[in-house]
Computed example of a mutant assay.
Amino acid sequence: MAEWRNCLDEGLKADSTIAYLWQQKAMPYFKASKYEIGMNYLDKAVFYDSRRWLSYRAFIKCIFAKTYHDAIIDFEKCIKNEGNSYVMDHTYQFHIALCNLQLNQFMKAESIFLKDIEEQEKEL
């Protein structure tokens, strides 16, 4: 672990704008359930390449960190920027509905799920 961290730190020392290195620095913390620490690094990945890492951060917030309000905000930004695309095999709307379900917003979650299913059926 220390060798991996040192390699990432050397890479970031050479070029701190490489978003992938920030995301990789976050991963061990997420795997250890230290989401708040990992999120500081993932936020830097999003800062340097939001197009690539914003949806991933939203996914982490939704599924692992369980910061549902923040996840919804990120997913809504993703939808605004690229439409209802996918992250980790599910649409952004699916994840928003899941967040609402976890926030006990059952009617809202159901409505979003149904709309998302309808859109996917049309697409497929």
Score class of each variant (00 low, 15 high):
residue 1 M to Q: 10
residue 2 A to M: 11
residue 4 W to H: 13
residue 5 R to L: 12
residue 7 C to Q: 12
residue 8 L to T: 08
residue 9 D to H: 09
residue 9 D to G: 01
residue 10 E to G: 08
residue 11 G to R: 07
residue 12 L to R: 07
residue 12 L to C: 08
residue 13 K to T: 11
residue 14 A to S: 10
residue 17 T to S: 15
residue 17 T to I: 05
residue 18 I to P: 06
residue 18 I to A: 06
residue 18 I to S: 05
residue 19 A to K: 09
residue 21 L to Q: 06
residue 21 L to A: 10
residue 22 W to Q: 07
residue 22 W to V: 05
residue 27 M to D: 13
residue 28 P to C: 07
residue 29 Y to E: 09
residue 30 F to Y: 15
residue 31 K to W: 03
residue 32 A to F: 08
residue 33 S to P: 00
residue 35 Y to N: 11
residue 37 I to C: 06
residue 38 G to S: 08
residue 38 G to I: 03
residue 39 M to V: 08
residue 40 N to G: 11
residue 40 N to V: 13
residue 41 Y to W: 04
residue 42 L to W: 10
residue 42 L to A: 08
residue 43 D to F: 00
residue 44 K to G: 01
residue 44 K to I: 00
residue 44 K to E: 10
residue 45 A to W: 06
residue 45 A to E: 06
residue 46 V to T: 04
residue 49 D to E: 06
residue 49 D to V: 01
residue 52 R to Y: 10
residue 56 Y to D: 04
residue 57 R to P: 07
residue 58 A to V: 05
residue 58 A to E: 03
residue 59 F to R: 02
residue 59 F to M: 06
residue 60 I to M: 14
residue 61 K to T: 02
residue 62 C to P: 04
residue 63 I to H: 09
residue 63 I to N: 06
residue 64 F to G: 11
residue 64 F to A: 11
residue 64 F to K: 12
residue 68 Y to P: 04
residue 69 H to G: 11
residue 71 A to L: 09
residue 73 I to A: 10
residue 73 I to D: 08
residue 73 I to M: 04
residue 73 I to V: 14
residue 74 D to C: 13
residue 75 F to K: 02
residue 75 F to C: 03
residue 75 F to G: 02
residue 76 E to A: 03
residue 76 E to W: 03
residue 76 E to C: 08
residue 76 E to Q: 15
residue 80 K to R: 14
residue 82 E to A: 12
residue 82 E to S: 14
residue 83 G to D: 03
residue 84 N to G: 07
residue 86 Y to V: 12
residue 86 Y to H: 14
residue 86 Y to S: 09
residue 87 V to L: 00
residue 87 V to P: 00
residue 93 Q to L: 14
residue 93 Q to K: 15
residue 94 F to S: 04
residue 95 H to C: 07
residue 96 I to Q: 04
residue 96 I to P: 02
residue 97 A to N: 12
residue 97 A to D: 11
residue 97 A to S: 14
residue 99 C to Q: 10
residue 99 C to S: 11
residue 101 L to D: 09
residue 104 N to H: 15
residue 105 Q to D: 09
residue 105 Q to C: 11
residue 106 F to G: 07
residue 108 K to G: 01
residue 109 A to E: 03
residue 110 E to T: 10
residue 112 I to K: 01
residue 113 F to T: 00
residue 114 L to E: 14
residue 114 L to W: 01
residue 115 K to Q: 05
residue 116 D to T: 09
residue 116 D to V: 00
residue 117 I to H: 02
residue 118 E to A: 05
residue 120 Q to W: 01
residue 121 E to I: 15
residue 121 E to P: 00
residue 122 K to D: 12
residue 122 K to C: 12
residue 123 E to Q: 15
residue 123 E to N: 14
residue 124 L to T: 09
